[in-house]
Amino acid sequence: MNFEAVKAIYLFEMARMRRTLLQSVVSPVLTTSLYFIVFGTAIGSRIEQIDGISYGAFITPGLIMLTLLTQCIANGSIGIYFPKFTGTIYEILSAPVAMTEILLGYVGAAASKGLIIGLIILGTASFFVDISIAHPVMMVVFLVLTAITFSLAGFIIGIWAKNFEQLNIMPMLVVPPLTFLGGSFYSIDMLPPFWQTVSHFNPVLYLVSGFRWSFYEIADVNPVISLAMIGLFLVICLSLVAWIFRTGYRLRN
């Protein structure tokens, strides 16, 4: 294992976050604060409690997930896409590093950034609403597994993307609808039966539901199933990455 290389890539990526602090940290915190002001305080004050939880508190786990998914995919993809775009990838590909080490460096950094931002948002949320965490260990498990899985998904997108438009498709066009329709802002019990069924095909439902359960012990789906689904997404992403590494897809061809 080339630990020096993993460290070099990881620190290089984290340095990029420090350099773009405004864009990396301040922007998601500001956006989330706006959500709390609009949905939590302004509109939320007129919405009755859901399962005994104030609306502002109810949407907190979903908002953290929304940011975590977007940030992990964005960071995971830009981390590997940018060297491809500028050409500096030559150095990593000609260095004595295995693809798993490249993966650890980039995905580790993207997941770390996602987690840092997720925790900052949790801190921000606590200024607006009362938050209680029933299962802190499981909360961290959900958070970490989701961060790793979606940073991996970002890495795959970064390798697949041939231009900036393709790079932005997932975080801009796919993640927001899935999160909004995945029970971030409501319990799917509120939906008509048909749409409840449709919602079960939305992977984000399982992430948000499981994560919310770790806070308030309320869930749209059994938390064990949520955990199993995250595990399944992780396995799918790892399989795709393994295939990319085996074939050299868009890296060494």
Binding site: A8, G87, E91
Partner: peptide
């Protein structure tokens, strides 16, 4: 090609090269 990390300093980019080669 002159492929460089435009926003990095000379010191950081050369240090990175050493690290990524396992030294």
């Amino acid at each position: 090609e002159l492929t460089t990390d435009q926003f990095e300093t000379v010191w950081n980019t050369v240090t990175f090269s050493r690290g990524v080669h396992g030294k």
